[in-house]
Design a protein around this nucleic acid. Sequence first.
DNA 1: ATATTTCTTTGACTTTAGTCAAAGGAAATG
DNA 2: CATTTCCTTTGACTAAAGTCAAAGAAATAT
Lengths: 304, 304
Amino acid sequence: MEPVSTDDVTAFRRFNRYFTRRIGVLDDHYLGQDRPLGEARLLYEIAGSEAGVSLRDLRGRLGLDAGYLSRMVRTLQAQGMVRLGVHPDDSRLRTVEPTPAGRAEVEEQNRRAGALTAGLLQGLAPDQRRELTEALATAQRLLRLAGITVERVDGHAPDARACLDAYAADLDARFPEGFDKSDLVGPEEVSGDAGAFFVAYEEGRPVGCGALRRLEPGVGEIKHVWVDPGARRLGLARRLLDALEGEAAARGLTVVRLDTHAVLTEAQAMYQACGYTEIPAYTDHVYAGHWFEKRLGSGPESRR
Amino acid sequence: MEPVSTDDVTAFRRFNRYFTRRIGVLDDHYLGQDRPLGEARLLYEIAGSEAGVSLRDLRGRLGLDAGYLSRMVRTLQAQGMVRLGVHPDDSRLRTVEPTPAGRAEVEEQNRRAGALTAGLLQGLAPDQRRELTEALATAQRLLRLAGITVERVDGHAPDARACLDAYAADLDARFPEGFDKSDLVGPEEVSGDAGAFFVAYEEGRPVGCGALRRLEPGVGEIKHVWVDPGARRLGLARRLLDALEGEAAARGLTVVRLDTHAVLTEAQAMYQACGYTEIPAYTDHVYAGHWFEKRLGSGPESRR
DNA sequence: ATATTTCTTTGACTTTAGTCAAAGGAAATG
DNA sequence: CATTTCCTTTGACTAAAGTCAAAGAAATAT
C-alpha cells in the first residue's frame, strides 16, 4: 500500500484547521444560544430521529456519560421539549421523543443556521457557489470512502447475513422475475477453505459485502458484491473487489470469475472498468446473463 | 445580488455537519490529551508564532477574556512551557514565547495529528487522495473569498494608507526602475466628490484595496488595485473591480479607464477578462505601459 | 431459580470555561 | 502635567461539562 504523501497530510490539516475555526465554531455558536451546547446538541439529535430513540442509542451516538445524559434528558423533559417513555421490547430501556415544542425549537435553529450559511455564500457569485458545492460534495464523498473499512468476517456472522438479506431484497426489487433467497451461498461455502466473506463497515454499521468461493482448482468465483444504497457512488464496490481479489491471490488462485444479471448494467460497466473481460457462460445459473473473468497478479492494476 | 439557492445551503450544511462530526472532533480530541483544550490551543498559538507574541495579540486572535488568558499563561509558565517578557516598545504589553519544552510538546502534537490524518487518507488510492486534496483546496479558496468583505473607507483612514504603502513596496520590488511613493494618489483625491477608496478585509485585516478618481466629466479612473500576496488567486481583484465600477456607475460615470505597467502581465489579463479593452495612451504617466477602458452599465457582466 | 449482566437514575464530586470588576502601572492625549 | 486610555493582574464568582460509584429494576445466561 502506497505511503501517504506529507503534502496531502498538510493540505488536509490546513483545511481542517481553517474550516473548524471559521465555520464549525459559528455553527456551534448559534446552536447554543438559548441553552447549553450539550443540551442543544442532544435535543438536535433527538429531534433528528423521527420515532423515539433509546437513551442507550443516544449515549452511543454522542458519547456521553450515562448519568450526564440522564440529567440532561430530565432538564429537556421539564422544559417540555421531549417526552420520555419505556421501550416496548425491553423495559430497561427508556425512549425519548421530541414534543411539538421541541421540534419547533430545532426547526428554528435550522432556520437560523441556514440564514447564517446563506449569508456566508452571499459573498460568492452563483457560479462560484456551484463550484464550492461541487468541491464539498467531492470531498465528502472521498472522506466517507476513506472512513469505510473492509473486513473479513465469518460467513455465519450476523452482519454477513444482514448484508445478504439486504442484497436479496435489492435484487428481488430489481429483477423482473424477482429473486429467491435460497439462491444465496450458504455460510459454509464462504468460510474456511471453501471461501471468504467480506463486510464493509462505515462507523460501525455494515454497508456492503462480497463473497469469494472456490470454483475449481486455481479458479475462484466472486459472488454477492453489494453496496448499501446510502453508500453508493463512493467507489466502495471497487474496494470490495480489491479485497476479494487480494484474498483470492493469497489463496493461490490465478483466475476469478463472476456472473451477473442482464439488468445490472452499471455493475457490468464497473467490472469491465476493473479489468474484467466478458467470457462465455461458465454456469447455467438462473439469474445470470453475463459472465466475466479476470486473471490475477498480472502486474499493475488498472485503477481509474 | 442573486439569492442563494437552498440547495447550496443544504449541501453546505450537510458537509459542515459531517466534517465537524467526523474530523473536527478528532482533531480537538488528540489536542487536549494531556491538558485542557483551552490551554492546548493557547500553547499551539504561542508556539505557532516564531518570535514572542504579545498577550494583547493572543487575546484578539483567540477571543479570550483578559483575566482568563492571564491565568492560563501563568499555568503554562509554571509548567515550563512558555517564557514571559515585557514588550520592548511598550512596557504595558507582555510577550510570551515558547520554551524548547513547549515547542517540543507542540511538535509532538503535530506529529500525532499528522499520523491520524495519514491513517485516514490511507484508505484512499493515491489518485483519490489527490482528488481530495484538490477539492479541499478549491473549497478553502472559495470559503476565504466568501469571507472577505469590500468596504468603502475614507482616503485618510490608516487601513487605506497601510494598503497603499504595501502596494508601493510591491511595485518598487517588481518594476525594474523601482517605484516612487510620491506617485500615489493623495487622500483627498479619493474622498468626497473627487473619488472613493475601497479596502478588502479578511477577518478584520486589510488584504486589498482599490481607488476610484474622477478624471473628466463622465469618466473615472481606477487606480491602485492591489491584493495582499497572502490573498492572491482567490478572485479578490475582481471583487474590488466590481465595487469600484459599482461606485463609478452610482456617480453617473459611464466610462472607467486605467493604466498599468508593462511588467504586470497578469493584471492586464485580468482587466481583459473583466471586460476592459486596451486603448491608446490617455496619460503620459511614467510607469504606464498599457491603457484600458470599460464602458459601464452595458447589460450583463462577463463573469468568468 | 439464581447469578450475572444491562440500563437508568441519583448523589456527590471535580475540572474546565468563562465573566466581571477593581486596581495599578505605563503610554498617549490635550 | 493632569487626564484619559490601554493593558495586565488578581480576586471572587458562575455555569457548563464531565466523572464515578452506588443502587434498583429488568433482562439474560447458567
